[in-house]
Simulated assay, not measured.
Amino acid sequence: MAPRRLIDLPGFADLETRALMKPSFAEPQARAEFPEIDQLARDTFGLTADEAAAIPDPEGWDGIDVKAMRDQADAFELERWDVTDDKRRPLRILGHFSHPLWLALRGVAGHLPFAPEPDEHDPSATSLAAEAAKFRRDKR
């Protein structure tokens, strides 16, 4: 099963593009100037970064939310979440969303966005795929 990509969730690609165009958009203080960051966090995970910070760490919490973004990206990958861009760099906006995502992933607070069950459809079983395979084998 492929990991879920944060950038593929609604709204995240737009914010990542904005952070690319205006690097200060990725800074923590940007949430005060751009309320759409908190709104996306609340809509997606049920809580904002500030609300996540107010939640006391549960017993045995490993402090993953304060580690370097590269370390977090590697840890998210182990949890089947891809929080990188197409060049495998952590998203610029990850700092706004990593703590709420960690809390939701570990069942402490918030929620994970809905993910439909994978489609059991096998595209190689279609007649078009079978015809294409037959065509490639035919060496006339």
Rank of each mutant, 00 (worst) to 15 (best):
residue 1 M to D: 11
residue 135 F to L: 10
residue 1 M to H: 13
residue 72 Q to P: 07
residue 36 E to M: 14
residue 100 P to A: 08
residue 37 I to S: 05
residue 114 F to H: 10
residue 24 S to E: 14
residue 10 P to M: 03
residue 10 P to L: 06
residue 29 Q to L: 00
residue 20 L to A: 14
residue 110 G to C: 03
residue 105 L to H: 10
residue 127 S to C: 07
residue 113 P to F: 03
residue 83 V to C: 02
residue 81 W to L: 09
residue 21 M to S: 15
residue 50 D to H: 02
residue 128 L to K: 09
residue 121 H to D: 13
residue 2 A to R: 14
residue 98 S to C: 10
residue 128 L to F: 13
residue 27 E to T: 08
residue 39 Q to A: 15
residue 7 I to V: 13
residue 106 R to D: 12
residue 81 W to Y: 08
residue 19 A to P: 09
residue 41 A to G: 07
residue 21 M to Q: 12
residue 13 A to K: 14
residue 102 W to V: 06
residue 42 R to N: 05
residue 101 L to D: 01
residue 43 D to W: 07
residue 34 F to M: 00
residue 75 A to W: 05
residue 125 A to W: 05
residue 46 G to M: 01
residue 25 F to P: 04
residue 82 D to V: 02
residue 10 P to G: 03
residue 9 L to P: 03
residue 129 A to M: 11
residue 119 D to A: 12
residue 77 E to K: 11
residue 133 A to D: 15
residue 57 D to T: 14
residue 28 P to A: 01
residue 31 R to Q: 09
residue 81 W to A: 02
residue 101 L to T: 06
residue 133 A to R: 15
residue 56 P to L: 11
residue 122 D to L: 08
residue 41 A to H: 02
residue 24 S to R: 14
residue 57 D to G: 09
residue 128 L to W: 01
residue 66 V to M: 07
residue 137 R to Q: 15
residue 64 I to V: 06
residue 122 D to E: 14
residue 13 A to V: 04
residue 107 G to S: 03
residue 115 A to T: 14
residue 29 Q to E: 12
